[in-house]
Design a protein around this nucleic acid. Structure first.
Length: 816
RNA sequence: GCCGGAGUGGCGGAAUGGUAGACGCGGCAGUCUCAAAAACUGUUGGGGAGUAAUCCCCGUGUCGGUUCGAAUCCGACCUUCGGCACCA
């Protein structure tokens, strides 16, 4: 009596059973080796779309595979629950962000459960809950006490739509808000920063990490390390105490080519260095600069602008007087905010010199470029000329010689500069962890004592988007007493960047309920670091970067807390699932909800289809037709097993073949899972299914072997389609649960082909094929081809030049 | 402008120096049916020769190169998707 495949029923049944049996609850007291597989924490946007499943389902398959392979697997799930959308929803719909977030979580949890993953829900974490954000604040205090958190007034990125400041990493495409795409502006504000720059050098070290090159390159570029020298230029300006200005350059070897000196328009020395006759022009230029949008400043193909201040610096190496100009292509925040202009050897300086008719003096030549009147800057290495005692040196040696001289005379030194800026962590919004700082008139800035954490968010704040934190208008929050002197004091009203919350959550999963610390150190030591971390590449210089910084900084603060250097050993970025017109997004209205497909075809089908679309790292297009193929396949698997097997007419050949295919399939499936190549793994299981259909029809193998084959098929299917595998496992009389079974092993000898098809080529063109034993020797293979009639036809009357044998592949006869 | 990924049938893709197109979608033909859908079976890169079994030619973005042999390696270019971009 066969029954049809009803995914909805069996999925519900097994999900309930797994939950009530705590099948996926995981502990630390196992003798098995651990494996920590983690998917990036989802934001509580409300609905999971198919893109979330694309991130999570294959990751679950991998975790399940590792579990069957005998690892104690931690594969947790939680929610990144603080952030702007909750607050914006609160403003537009009048719901409290907490309520909005929690109801979203409820829906997302339901959707996640329908996926049938091995998440241990006992370890769920929600970053907006006080028992979690208490520790986010605690980490802030650790950084503060270690001198890594500081407050400073600086021109910062401001998103007028989000009404808050943004970290540099959150400004994309030069000037757009990462979250809402609005053009950001600059604002001068007193803000909290974390000194990530202190770790610039160590963050460049990726040794021992199995990470995609792309992400490593993006982080390296973001850090932007430059080696060069800081050089002092003499200043002899009446009424100015300062006697030098320093520049940073990567080309000290070109110092004899300096023909002008550049300052950023913002440089505080500008007013004093401007002579009366240039005052008007300089003032006009500065006010013009202020009117320019920030992104214009960093646009490369724009005519150079600037103004002469009327005063000069001295190039100490040749005693020359060099005119000081200001220009907006010198950025105040990089290096020393001053540049030596070497037009012959720097493209930008060249353009500037052309525009303002400043001298262009070549000091480096190359064999191809023999000092002709330059039509472009020559920025390659070469031989030094016009450089006094240094003439004739290669620029590489000149670099060293000039640095030596600078250091000897104390005119400068070798130095390294980074593009990376400190991480701005203040946000002028409500829905985040309050920064645990109190301002006291008497004691100044006072950190909230650890035992007073968490600093709770007041539930009754008003979310007026005013550009200032809503907490500022909540007197019961702001007014407090100083922890030091007990006098009246005010709380810091900015909240922490939500990236602070997600920089340490993977530590918390080791012991989500810990309340004596952010985690239980013993458990942390057991689970961390993460063995496989998967998620989108969009976090390259944000979440992934901050998390690395967190671990390194915490390690240096207290080795008993963290005793490893990197949070994520292996990183994998899945691609993007597109649908009608590109990446799914709410604004495009092309978001696919998994719910509909889950109820029509089952979670197993949706999981497997997502894996089948293509290589995981490439993503691909969702197709309503394509998913039917997977649905049909699972139905075929179901029917294959439900139809039973009886009265075999055994054929030796068929027996041997099936045994070989079983082992070949185990081998291929295991390798593909290890390499996260889910699409080819499923293709291989489909081939296996097709072969089994044929065997079933022919009844060509003994019943015992048939049963071995389908048992194997179910085990191999279990990570990808856990529900149908469990159901068929039980229907074939096996003991619960398939998910506690060991992953099948293969016999390497059986997995190998016994017979191979050898291709025979004449001059590299395929002319014949022959079935031979896999163990054929080179001599045998080369000899055998001459008996083939087709070889005779093609070689008759021709001169045989040589015969090439590629073992197990091809014999190629070269004729003339 | 610079760096990186991708480009293969009608479509998603497989093959990373050795039989191009695995697996799936779609199409076509058939079985079942009064019929249709579903399901199942067969077939399916293009062109050509042959009654046929078969056989030949072309074919992995474009043009060159290396090699006995190239989707795969090298050089130049085109398209496309990411990232970076006046960082001295």
């Amino acid at each position: 009596m066969t029954q049809r495949y009803h995914p909805r029923e069996i999925e519900k049944k097994w999900q309930e059973r797994w939950a009530s049996d705590h099948l996926y609850q995981v502990g630390e007291d196992s003798d098995l080796p651990k494996f920590y597989a983690l998917t990036m924490l989802p934001y509580t946007s409300g609905d999971l779309h198919i893109g979330h499943w694309y991130a999570m389902a294959p990751s679950d398959v991998c975790a399940r595979f590792k579990r069957m392979q005998g690892f104690n697997v931690l594969h947790p799930m939680g929610f990144d629950a603080f952030g702007l959308p909750a607050e914006n929803a609160a403003i537009s719909h009048g719901i409290h962000p907490h309520e909005w977030t929690m109801s979203n979580i409820e829906n997302m949890r339901r959707q996640l459960k329908s996926m049938g993953a091995i998440y241990d829900w006992n370890r769920e974490l929600i970053s907006c809950q006080p028992e979690y954000y208490k520790w986010t604040q605690w980490f802030f205090l650790k950084f503060y006490h270690a001198g890594l958190a500081y407050r400073s007034r600086a021109p910062v990125n401001w998103c007028p739509k989000c009404q808050t400041v943004l970290a540099n990493e959150q400004v994309v495409g030069g000037d757009l808000c990462e979250r809402c795409g609005t053009e950001v502006t600059k604002k001068d504000l007193e803000q909290w920063f974390l000194q990530i720059t202190r770790y610039a050098e160590e963050l460049l070290d990726f040794s021992g990490l199995d990470w995609p090159e792309k992400i490593k390159t993006m982080q390296k570029n973001w850090i932007g390390k430059s080696e060069g020298a800081e050089i002092s230029f003499g200043l002899e300006h009446a009424g100015l105490e300062q006697k030098e200005i320093r520049v940073f350059t990567t080309r000290p070897d070109t110092i004899f080519g300096v023909s002008f000196f550049l300052l950023a328009p913002e440089n505080p020395l500008v007013p004093q260095l401007t002579t009366p006759e240039h005052q008007k022009e300089v003032a006009e230029y500065i006010s013009w600069c202020k009117r320019q949008a920030d992104y214009m400043r960093t646009s490369t193909d724009r005519e150079k602008t600037g103004a002469f201040l009327g005063s000069y610096v001295i190039n100490r190496l040749n005693g020359e007087k060099v005119p000081i100009w200001i220009t907006d292509y010198v950025l105040p925040s990089y290096g020393t905010g001053a540049v030596m202009g070497v037009p012959a050897h720097d493209e930008r300086d060249f353009d500037f010199a052309r525009k303002f008719h400043l001298p262009i003096r070549p000091v480096i030549t190359s064999p191809e470029h023999t000092g002709d009147e330059a039509i472009q800057a020559y920025s390659e290495p070469g031989v030094m000329i016009n450089s006094g005692d240094f003439n004739g040196l290669s620029s590489e040696r000149g670099y060293e010689a000039i640095c030596d001289l600078l250091e000897r005379k104390d005119w400068g030194k070798r130095t390294v500069t980074y593009r990376l800026r400190d991480w701005l962590i203040s946000r002028q919004r409500y829905w985040g962890a309050p920064i645990p700082i109190v301002y006291c008139a008497r004691c100044g800035t006072v950190p909230v004592p650890e035992e007073n954490l968490p600093v709770l968010l007041p539930p009754n704040a008003e979310f007026r988007p005013t550009g200032e934190s809503p907490l500022k208008y909540c007197p019961e929050f702001v007014n407090t007493t100083c922890p030091r002197c007990s006098g009246p004091a005010q709380r810091e009203t900015d909240t922490l960047d939500t990236f602070m919350c997600s920089s340490w959550y993977y530590l918390r999963y080791s012991s989500t309920r810990a309340d004596a610390g952010p985690f239980d150190t013993r458990k942390l030591k057991y689970w961390l670091p993460v063995d496989l971390y998967t998620g989108g590449a969009e976090h390259a210089v944000m979440h992934l970067f901050y998390s690395r910084f967190f671990i390194k900084a915490l390690r240096d603060i207290d080795r008993n807390l963290i005793d490893f250097d990197e949070p994520f050993k292996r990183l994998f970025n899945q691609g993007i699932i597109a649908y009608h017109g590109g990446k799914m997004s709410k604004s495009k209205g092309n978001v696919i909800s998994p719910d509909k497909y889950v109820s029509e075809m089952g979670a197993d089908t949706v999981r497997a289809y997502l894996m089948f679309i293509g290589p995981w790292e490439l993503g691909g297009g969702w197709s309503d037709r394509g998913i039917r193929g997977i649905s049909r396949w699972l139905n075929r698997v179901w029917n294959l097993i439900e139809n039973g097997y009886a009265h075999p007419v055994t054929k030796e050949e068929a027996k041997k073949e099936l045994l070989h295919i079983i082992h070949r399939t185990i081998k291929k499936t295991s390798e593909d899972l290890e390499n996260l190549r889910f699409n080819t793994m499923l293709a291989c299981l489909m081939e296996f299914t097709n072969h089994l259909s044929k065997v079933q029809k022919e009844r060509s193998v003994p019943t015992a072997l048939w049963q071995e084959a389908i048992t194997c098929l179910l085990l191999l299917l279990a990570p990808s389609a856990p529900h149908i595998a469990e159901e068929l496992w039980s229907r074939t009389g096996h003991a619960y649960s398939i998910h506690n079974q060991p992953w099948p092993r293969f016999d390497a000898r059986l997995a190998e082909e016994e017979q191979i098809t050898l291709a025979i080529q004449i001059n590299g063109k395929l002319r014949d094929k022959v079935l031979v034993s896999a163990s054929i020797s080179e001599a045998e293979a080369k000899g055998l081809v001459w008996e083939r009639p087709r070889v005779k036809i093609y070689t008759e009357g021709k001169e045989i030049l040589k015969t090439i044998y590629a073992p197990g592949r091809v014999v190629n006869i070269v004729v003339k």
